[in-house]
Write a protein that binds this DNA or RNA. Structure first.
Lengths: 217, 217
DNA sequence: CTCTCTCGACTGACCAGTCAATCTGGCGCA
DNA sequence: TGCGCCAGATTGACTGGTCAGTCGAGAGAG
């Protein structure tokens, strides 16, 4: 097995190895956690020599850096792009954001697990380096909320930053629950949850009948 | 300095040392993170010899265990107690839960930082041991939500487990934002946020005018 | 005299990162 | 066409430092 080196040229072959190391790192980090795995395990998983990891990366941390920045930037771009769509309602925009994040998990669960568990939720150790990038995501969501606050469709007494925290926090918690099997996982669950989380945060948990009377009284 | 052993008896003196080590651990873990501090630093902070730490605790992890379990149980009891109050509305119960958690952070920010950062948000490494305990908290909140779902004041299409995740996730995210200075901290902010997070999750971000029309069609 | 508390130097394991040696494939030159 | 050379790719044994946890000895109370 894996006998034929394939038709890859020497140059692209080199880049392939780098990519193979990154992919192997996703698998190993997801399985054992960043701190509980050895660099040698990443090398083994990638099928390369230990030293080669250090040919392509300065340190073990730089691998995680790379994985995070690469993926996070895609999300930041997606959020900015969603915000730009002027014909879409704010609730639909938030649905699109939730959708993007949940689909990311659906398609690349290991990568998302690593990003959430080792970076986003590890703000004290590794995530500290990336606090600014993480904050950018909150900012992007806050920008979406802000337009709704201005046009009166969202409550003005809840700041957009605070609202963004609640929204992102709810999504991340649900993802975390999936990661650690605290909530059931299935295609239907993923799809269903996109609507639920937006409904819960935008419309609230209370039924309209329960919350409406409080307004004018 | 520290010449006088004080009037503490020998028995209570011994227990004092144990407590001093726990308190020192809170300070050191909060400042440097569990993984980035040495046991010797905890001993120094407590003003005791290195070896004494291992007289009272089996391992570094057991110290964190102890800190977490001690505090988490208090919260579980509080949630259960709140749930038991039958004269209180569900929204008010959730306000009381938010209040309890936020006040915990207000009064013991270091301890709460350690619990959140090193246990609750570190489900892959250390938190894994305590997943069941953490789940209990979700369950307690879900139980509160469930009563409201049954009497029709909360939406029935959002499961109480899911709702609990959103609620707890939003609070934890806000606490995390305070811990890492992503949101402003002050007595007013703490007090104000209790109401905001409940209002956001129960009533929703949307103004009643924006969400109500969708009901009757 | 014994039991518990206290001490801190020491050990043993672990592992990230280094480095010198080897391989490979393309390219200039005769 | 064939030869020699170089640069980058690849290898894995080894080093250096770190630190959790151990242990044997001392102190003091009952």
């Amino acid at each position: 097995m894996a006998a034929a080196p394939g038709p890859a040229g020497s140059r692209s072959g080199a880049l392939d190895k780098r990519r193979m190391i990154l992919d192997a790192a996703v698998t190993v980090f997801a399985r054992q956690g960043f701190h509980h795995c050895r660099v040698s395990e990443v090398a083994d998983e990638a099928g390369v020599a230990y030293g080669l990891v250090y040919h392509y990366f300065d340190s073990k941390e730089e691998i995680l850096n790379q994985l995070f920045l690469e993926r996070w930037q895609i999300m930041l771009d997606a959020i900015a792009e969603i915000d730009r769509r002027q014909e879409v309602s704010v609730r639909d925009k938030l649905y699109m954001v939730a959708s993007f994040i949940i689909d990311s998990y659906r398609h690349e669960p290991d990568l998302m697990k690593v990003i959430i568990v080792e970076v986003t939720r590890a703000a004290n150790s590794f995530g500290r380096l990336h606090l600014e990038k993480i904050r950018e995501a909150y900012g992007g969501i806050a920008a979406i909320v802000e337009t709704a606050r201005r046009d009166g469709s969202f409550k003005s007494d809840i700041s957009s930053e605070f609202a963004a925290m609640c929204f992102y926090g709810a999504i991340e918690q649900v993802l975390t629950a999936w990661i650690f099997d605290l909530l059931p996982r299935s295609e239907e669950e993923y799809e269903h949850s996109k609507g639920l989380v937006v409904d819960a945060i935008c419309g609230g948990l209370e039924t309209p009948a329960a919350s409406a009377p409080a307004v004018s009284g």
